[in-house]
Computed example of a mutant assay.
Amino acid sequence: MKSKNGWTCLLLVLAGIVLGGFIGSLFPSSFMNFGQTFGLTNPLILDFGILSITFALTIKITIASILGIVIALLIYRIL
């Protein structure tokens, strides 16, 4: 019996999110690209004079990315 690694699961889930987002972008007018976007709409800027740091994070969850996660978890269960 193989022992399953948490890093493998995380890598597969991230790959599922990326591939699901890619598939959703291939069909922009289909139901697969329907989803919600959340995060910082305006970036947070810290200006120290010498150093300027910009923070921004936006996450878009679509039906295609959720399907990618489900498929990745099914593959993880099979491995």
Rank of each mutant, 00 (worst) to 15 (best):
M1G: 08
M32H: 08
S30M: 05
L26P: 08
I23N: 07
V18H: 12
A72I: 01
M32Y: 14
K2Q: 03
S25R: 12
L12W: 10
I75K: 01
G21W: 09
A15T: 12
I61K: 06
N5A: 05
T8C: 11
L67M: 14
S29A: 14
V13P: 03
V70T: 11
F22P: 03
I53D: 02
S29M: 05
C9Y: 09
N33D: 05
N5I: 04
T58F: 06
K4Q: 01
T54K: 15
G20R: 01
F34R: 07
C9W: 03
G24P: 08
A64K: 02
S30P: 01
G20V: 02
I17E: 14
A15M: 09
Q36T: 04
G16P: 01
F31C: 02
I63R: 04
I78C: 04
P43H: 12
I17F: 11
T37W: 06
F22W: 15
I23M: 14
A56T: 03
G49L: 05
L14D: 11
L46V: 10
L19R: 04
I75C: 07
P43D: 11
G21F: 02
F27L: 14
L11A: 15
K60I: 02
L79C: 10
I59K: 11
T58H: 06
G16M: 04
F38S: 07
S30K: 00
I66F: 11
P43V: 01
F22C: 05
I23S: 13
L14S: 10
K2P: 12
T8K: 08
G39E: 01
L57G: 11
V70Y: 06
G49C: 10
I61T: 11
S29V: 11
N42V: 08
A15G: 09
S65N: 13
P28S: 09
G6H: 00
M32Q: 05
L67P: 01
K4H: 06
S3F: 11
L40K: 01
I63Q: 13
F22Y: 15
I50S: 15
C9H: 00
S52I: 04
S65Q: 14
F34M: 13
A56M: 10
L44F: 15
I75F: 13
A72F: 02
F34K: 03
L11Y: 10
K60P: 05
G20H: 03
F48D: 03
F55A: 04
G21P: 04
T54Q: 13
I45A: 08
L74A: 12
G39Q: 09
I61M: 14
S65A: 05
L26I: 13
N42H: 09
L73E: 00
I78P: 00
Q36Y: 09
A72Y: 01
G21H: 13
I59E: 06
T41E: 13
P28I: 06
I53E: 00
G68V: 06
I66E: 03
S52L: 02
F38K: 02
Q36S: 09
L19K: 07
V18F: 15
G39P: 08
S3Y: 09
I45R: 07
S52Q: 11
S30D: 04
L14M: 15
I75D: 00
G21I: 00
S65F: 08
A15N: 07
I75S: 01
F22R: 15
I66K: 03
T58I: 12
G20D: 02
K2E: 05
F48W: 09
N33C: 10
S3R: 15
L40G: 07
